[in-house]
């Protein structure tokens, strides 16, 4: 069946994205992105009935998506960033995942216990960087890596590589 991923976003502006952006502006004025968005990323492992199973889980468990304050979509339906101020912007996604993660383990246990017909779930955070037009994709990608991986106090912010791993999903085709 394969894995099916969803993204969850706040209906209001994400405070973590705003704080990260203001930190970038302060400490990396030369390379900071022009836009930054943050999403919860849930990957459901081998759901028995595919999207139907995932939709059922999401509608049942409001700890995964609280409809009062969050919206969600399947990852392949999620291509357009919220910020569409410049249609020629370059967008790069980076996913940050804890190497050991109680949240994923416990949700896997809950879903199995309640016979949700899914092998497990993996939780991550998806950050979406937007750079104004005029920057090459490779240059933008390198900037994202520099800004994300925190190796020193004055280098990187979004992921501590000792406890977290990052991956860059396929480039966006917007």
């Amino acid at each position: 069946m394969g894995n099916i991923s969803i993204i969850v976003r706040l209906k209001s502006p994400d405070p973590a994205a705003m704080t990260a952006m203001s930190t970038f502006r302060r400490i990396y004025p030369e390379t900071c992105p022009d836009s930054l968005e943050r999403y919860d990323y849930w990957c459901f492992l081998n759901p028995c009935l595919g999207r139907e199973t995932v939709s059922g889980i999401v509608s049942r468990y409001h700890d995964i998506v609280n409809p009062n304050k969050q919206t969600w979509s399947f990852i392949d339906e999620f291509s357009k960033p919220v910020d569409r101020s410049d249609d020629r912007m370059v967008w790069i996604d980076v996913r940050v995942t804890d190497r050991v993660d109680s949240v994923s383990e416990n949700w896997t246990a809950i879903l199995r216990r309640n016979r949700c017909e899914v092998e497990g779930v993996l939780c991550s955070v998806l950050w979406r960087f937007g750079f104004a037009s005029g920057i090459s994709f490779d240059n933008a990608r390198n900037r994202v890596l520099d800004l994300t991986v925190s190796t020193r106090r004055d280098h990187g912010l979004l992921a501590n590589p000792v406890s977290q791993k990052i991956d860059l999903p396929a480039p966006l085709l917007i």
Binding site: D101, V103, A109, T151, R153
Partner: peptide, 18 residues
């Protein structure tokens, strides 16, 4: 000097998180 060599990661307890 100045290198991040450890982390204080999320609690890892079987059956609970947070």
């Amino acid at each position: 000097r100045g290198r991040i060599e450890s982390a204080l990661a999320a609690n890892h307890i079987s059956g609970r998180s947070g």
